[in-house]
């Protein structure tokens, strides 16, 4: 193919031909088979490589017909049925509440252990302090809810507990984006972002919780304080802790203790 033809096809794909040129272009398409084949391939490449486009196939293509036939076979039809069923049951599965009790018992004992650890170990680094406090957090478990839509949250919590924060966020963020207002989802999201060092995003998440009209909105202050501590923004951290103490907000006792540790340093 000549460079001239290439320029012509290029201008056509970019929508840069005049009406008159388009008429000539279409005439050439009909009369010059080699040219037409080139245009088809160029067009397929052009649309397939751009996000705002897609290269659609022709239903008369023999391969398409063959796939269509295979899709009608009983084996694939039964797979189709199974996929539908699995999709439905995944949403409905609910887990044994026994796990909740175990979870709470373990969480409670860890909390006591870490609180003792924090106050006896005055030389902890800020990072250690944050980790200790986060480990001691009594984040609620979604497994206790039992409603069908919480299946997603249970799985996200599993990821979170396995410290797979990225996968956890893949679930939590769409839930928040869908407009569901839930303090626990905010907290899990913010802590996951914090763990992934996405500090700006974590702060936005905690701020959104604080600004919400949720009963647990005040928890946002405590975690925002930990977020500042994690980043060694000690003055900001102290400001929030003082606010928590003066207003007797969530975890004000811990906040008071943490303030003391920070002031002693």
């Amino acid at each position: 193919m000549s460079l001239d033809d290439d320029i012509l096809i290029d201008n056509y794909l970019r929508g840069q031909l005049s009406d008159q040129e388009i008429v000539a272009f279409e005439l050439k398409l009909k009369s010059d088979d080699e040219f037409r084949k080139n245009v088809e391939l160029e067009r397929a490449l052009w649309v397939s490589q751009n996000e705002s486009d897609w290269s659609f196939a022709n239903p008369n293509n023999e391969e398409v017909k063959a796939y269509k036939k295979l899709l009608e076979e009983p084996g694939i039809q039964s797979l189709k049925k199974s996929l539908g069923q699995i999709n439905t049951t995944l949403k409905k599965d609910s887990k044994s509440t026994v796990k909740n009790w175990v979870y709470y018992m373990v969480a409670a004992s860890i909390a006591i252990f870490f609180c003792l650890n924090i106050f006896f170990n005055q030389n902890s680094s800020n990072q250690e302090l944050v980790d200790d406090f986060l480990s001691a957090s009594d984040l609620p478990s979604f497994t206790s809810r039992g409603a069908s839509e919480t299946e997603d949250l249970i799985l996200a919590q599993e990821f979170f507990e396995k410290e797979n924060f990225k996968d956890a966020l893949d679930i939590f963020i769409p839930i928040l984006d869908s407009g569901i207002k839930d303090a626990s989802v905010y907290l899990y999201t913010g802590i996951s972002q914090m763990k992934l060092k996405q500090y700006g995003k974590a702060e936005t998440t905690f701020d959104a919780l604080i600004a919400s009209d949720l009963l647990d909105a005040q928890k946002g202050y405590w975690y925002k304080a930990l977020l500042y501590l994690q980043q060694d923004h000690i003055d900001d951290c102290k400001t929030i802790l003082s606010h928590i103490v003066s207003q007797s907000l969530y975890n004000h006792t811990e906040a008071k203790a943490l303030l003391k540790v920070l002031n002693d340093d």
């Binding site: 397929a44 397939s48 897609w54 290269s55 659609f56 196939a57 022709n58 239903p59 293509n61 391969e63 398409v64 017909k65 796939y67 269509k68 899709l71 009608e72």
Partner: peptide
């Protein structure tokens, strides 16, 4: 092309994916 949300649509998408 009239696109339908059925086997034909899936069949088309297989070919398109292969081409891609």
């Amino acid at each position: 092309i009239e696109l339908k949300n059925d086997n034909e649509d899936i069949a088309l998408s297989v070919l398109e994916q292969e081409r891609w």
